[in-house]
Write a protein that binds this DNA or RNA. Structure first.
Lengths: 203, 203
DNA sequence: TATTTGGTTGACTAGTCAGTCAATTTTGAT
DNA sequence: ATCAAAATTGACTGACTAGTCAACCAAATA
C-alpha cells in the first residue's frame, strides 16, 4: 500500500472501509489513519468527503472494467457471458466475505441506497456508473441474444437489462442482509436464466 | 399525531425519517423534535437508538400484515396474489415519492444494507422480518402454484421464493438509487412473471 | 391525604464529526 | 544552487452525537 501515492491510498482505503460498513459510519480521520495520511493531506487532494466517495466509485469502475470487458467480450456467446458474470459474482462475494469477515454485497448498491436521500452528488454518480454497466454490458449482450434469435425480436432490450440487473443486485443485497452466501450459490444462476427466458441446459 | 402515545409517535417518526434518509444521518434529537418529545422521554421508553430501530421494524411489519394477509389470501389465485403485490408496490412507491419528494425504496432493504456491517441486532431483526414475509407469503403462494400444477413438482420452493423476493427488492432498490419510478412501472410485473415461469396472458 | 408509579423535562457529559489553516518540508524544473 | 509549486503536518474550530441524570409532575391507589 505504501508504494502507491497518497491520493490512491485514500481512495482504496475509502472503498474498503465504506464497503465493509457504510459511508456515514466511516470517518475521514479513520480513512486517513488506515492510509497513513494526515488529515490536512486529505483535504489537499479532496475538497470534501463527498468528492472522495465519487473518486472511489469512479476508481472501482475503472478497476473492474478490464474484467467486465473480458467477460462480455463479443467472442463469448451471450449466455456464456452471463454465466461468467454469475461465477465472478460468486467468487467475488466469497473472497470479500473471507477478507472482511462478513458478506459485503454490492458497494454501488449499498452506498447508493444509503446516500440516495441525502447526497445528490453521490446518488447521481452511482446512477451514472450503474447506467454504464447496464448499457455497455447487459443491454449489449441481450441485444446480441435478440439478433441471434435466442430472444424474440419484440424484446424490450432496455427493460430486460433493467430486470436482469435488478435481480442480480437484489440477490447480492439480500446476501449482505442475511450475511449468508448459500442462497446466492444455490439460486443465482437459475433465476437469471429464468429472467433471460432460456433453459438451464444451455450451460 | 399528537393523539398517539409518546412511544408510538417516536416509532412512527423514526420510520419516516430513517426511510427518507438513513439510520446514521437521523439523530435521536431529530426524531424527538419531530415527535414533540424530549430527549429524556426517549430514553425512558428505549434503552438505545438501536432498540428504537428494532421497534420501528417490528411496527412496520405489524402494520403491513393485514394488507399482506388480504393480498395473499387463499381465496385469490396464486398469480392474482403476485399481481396485487405488484400493484401494491407501485402504488406505495408512488405515494411515498409524492409525500417525501423522492423515491424511498424498501425501508427494510435500505436499513438492512446500511447497518448489516455494523449493528448485528438490527441486521438480525431485518433478516427475521424478511424471512417472515418470504415464508408466510411468497413460499406459500409458490407452493400453491406447484400444487395446482402451474409449476413443476420438482420446483425448489424456497429457492424460487428467494429469487422472487430478490428480484422485487432489487427493482425497488434500483428505483431509489435512480430516483425514478418509470422503469419500475414498465418492467416490474413482466420480470416477475418470467421468474415465476408463467406467461403474461394470465393477467 | 400520603405514597407510589409512570411519565416528563432539559441541561449536561464526553466524545465524535467534517473541515480549516498557517507553518513546514519535499520535489522538480531551470 | 535557486526557487516556486506541490505535498505534508497536526493542532484547531464549531457543530453535532448518543446517552445520563436529578429534579419534577400528574394521576391512580390505598
Amino acid at each position: 500500500m505504501a508504494d502507491k501515492g497518497t491520493k490512491e491510498r485514500l481512495i482504496e482505503t475509502a472503498m474498503e472501509l465504506i464497503w465493509q460498513s457504510s459511508y456515514r459510519s466511516v470517518s475521514v480521520e479513520e480513512i486517513c489513519k488506515n492510509s497513513d495520511v494526515n488529515k490536512g493531506s486529505f483535504y489537499h487532494f479532496f475538497p470534501s468527503k463527498t468528492d472522495l466517495a465519487v473518486a472511489a466509485i469512479e476508481q472501482y469502475y475503472i478497476d473492474s472494467k478490464p474484467i467486465f470487458d473480458e467477460i462480455f467480450d463479443i467472442s463469448n456467446e451471450p449466455i456464456e457471458r452471463f454465466d461468467k458474470l454469475v461465477n465472478l459474482i460468486l467468487v467475488h462475494q466469497k473472497e470479500t466475505k473471507k477478507r472482511y469477515g462478513h458478506v459485503c454485497g454490492c458497494p454501488f448498491a449499498s452506498l447508493g441506497s444509503e446516500m440516495a436521500g441525502q447526497d445528490e452528488v453521490i446518488r447521481k454518480k452511482i446512477q451514472n456508473t450503474i447506467g454504464k454497466y447496464k448499457s455497455e454490458y447487459y443491454q449489449q449482450a441481450i441485444q446480441d441474444m435478440v439478433d441471434e434469435g435466442m430472444l424474440p425480436k419484440t424484446t424490450d432490450v432496455k427493460s430486460k437489462a433493467q430486470e436482469v440487473y435488478s435481480y442480480l443486485l437484489g440477490q447480492v443485497m439480500l446476501a449482505r442482509i442475511q450475511n449468508d452466501l448459500k442462497p446466492l450459490n444455490k439460486s443465482l444462476k437459475n433465476g437469471l436464466y429464468e429472467i433471460l427466458g432460456v433453459s438451464l441446459e444451455s450451460a
